[in-house]
Design a protein around this nucleic acid. Structure first.
Lengths: 103, 103
DNA sequence: GGCTATGTTCTATAGCTCTCGAACATCAGA
DNA sequence: TCTGATGTTCGAGAGCTATAGAACATAGCC
């Protein structure tokens, strides 16, 4: 991690179009679906066989859209879904979408 | 209308990433929100001050994503939201999103 | 200090998206 | 049939996005 902490938008700054755009990519939607159980995961666990630089790009988009929160831990980067905040700002929406992830 | 009828995906072909992408543009999201009451509207009513060719492009994306149904009527083109079909394929999702349109 | 693991950033490239003027197609009405 | 209204399609330009290799940064461990 070159920077100690990542940029995350505040809950009130999260914009619906940005959220939907971030979720409109199958790779990113899969990442969010994998985080849906609330557990914290490292980037490596979420990448599959996609190159790291490509995944890093997707992680950045998810983070800046306000979907995920990134926390550096050693040389790793741990990700969580910002479930509670998203639920407060867009009640019911994330669940309604994730229920259909995979379609 | 140069072609008598437009291409619409069947309900089963509608893909979630395509839906989310179509909704991730503020102009298109506004169109969908305007159609949310179930009423049929012509393209002209939905355009605002955006050039017609630009709107036509957005209408095409909405249509091909499976969100709207286009019906030629005279020289006009009438649009409706494919609410029932979308509700059957992605229960609760569209409402959950439209509830927050504008944010 | 050297080595390895984990990610990020940089750079490049190909392809896509948005926008919009111009030309075209279709229909209704006078 | 001519005209106006309504949209679509075509073409071009600017900007963005996805992908991925290469270089770099950081932390843990020997």
């Amino acid at each position: 991690m070159t920077e100690r902490s990542f940029l995350h938008p505040g809950a009130e700054e999260i914009a619906l179009p940005d959220l939907l755009f971030a979720l409109s990519d199958p790779t990113r939607l899969a990442v969010v679906a994998a985080l849906a159980d609330g557990a914290e995961r490292s980037c490596g666990e979420l990448g599959g066989d996609v190159p790291k630089s490509t995944m890093s790009h997707h992680f950045k988009i998810l983070r800046e859209a306000g979907l995920t929160r990134a926390r550096p831990e050693g040389t790793r980067c741990r990700l969580t879904l910002r479930r509670a905040e998203l639920e407060r700002r867009f009640p019911g929406m994330l669940d309604a979408i994730l229920k259909h992830a995979g379609k």
